[in-house]
């Protein structure tokens, strides 16, 4: 299936990605190629097949006792933050 410009703009918005005007035609072209390529999956009948989400059968999510195991290391983690103040992450104002 060929995607059109509006499809790609919509996908980019959903993915929170800014795509420039100049880049857009290339994304339309290449994403169309990828979508067309994966459409060959429709050549096989999968009506009675259970979707496979995990490559190993019989795996279960483990439980553990509800006890603290990680130390609070906020200062160390915030060293990687673009902007912090008083232990808080700063972003542009969201409420006027």
């Amino acid at each position: 299936m060929n995607l059109i410009r509006r499809d790609v703009e919509n996908i980019a918005h959903l993915a929170r990605l800014r795509i420039t005007e100049a880049e857009l035609p290339d994304y339309v072209d290449r994403l169309s190629k990828i979508v067309t390529f994966v459409e060959q999956l429709n050549t096989v009948d999968t009506a009675d097949v259970e979707p496979m989400a995990h490559p190993l059968a019989d795996q279960v999510q483990r439980m553990r006792p509800d006890e603290p195991v990680e130390m609070d290391d906020r200062e160390k983690y915030q060293r990687n933050a673009p902007k912090v103040e008083a232990g808080l992450y700063l972003v542009p104002k969201v409420i006027e």
């Binding site: 097949v49 979707p51 496979m52």
Partner: peptide, 10 residues
């Protein structure tokens, strides 16, 4: 669809 084909491959 892809997850179903994935099972067939496995």
């Amino acid at each position: 669809k892809a997850q179903r084909v994935r099972r067939l491959i496995a």
